[in-house]
Amino acid sequence: MTSEASTEPTTDAELYAKYSHALVAFATSIVGPSMAADVVHDAAVSLVSSQALARAHDPRALLYKAVFAKAKSAQRSAFRRRDRERRFAATIVTHDPEVLPEVAIAVAKLSPQQRACVFLTYWEDMTPQTVGDFLGISDGTVKHHLARARKRLRETLDQGDTA
């Protein structure tokens, strides 16, 4: 989980140092571990180059928005989606044997938006309002994504129970 430092970073480098680990974890939830560091780095460099980070009212939220956008772009590979889903699911399963394989597969098949909402809600303990602020969407949309994700995961698990 994340925790706030008592002193807010003031420079781009300090911001990056403070939030990059959490951002990489967030990116991992969308694109998997192999691309996450690059996604975060590219997003941060873009923000630094455009000086957007320095001007931002909420630089942390801006960093998440930028990483989310980059991650979605990176996800867009047209023909490798299913292979990526398989590898993604395998990552979850192998890392925690107590995670049901059906859950790992179902999580891997969620849309990037749904995964982002699930991650920020379940890992960062954010409220729908905060998730919405960080992803640039309304809290209603966040709730919608979460509800659909939970419904999908529940259906998957229920199918597993009856199989």
Partner: peptide, 25 residues
């Protein structure tokens, strides 16, 4: 189960790259 899956994912995340010198993008 969702929390476990998310934690498993987060724990696989790699180290961040050092921030390169910013160049016009």
């Amino acid at each position: 189960q969702i929390t476990r899956a998310v934690r498993a994912l987060a724990e696989t995340s790699p180290e961040p790259l050092p921030l390169a010198a910013a160049t016009p993008q």
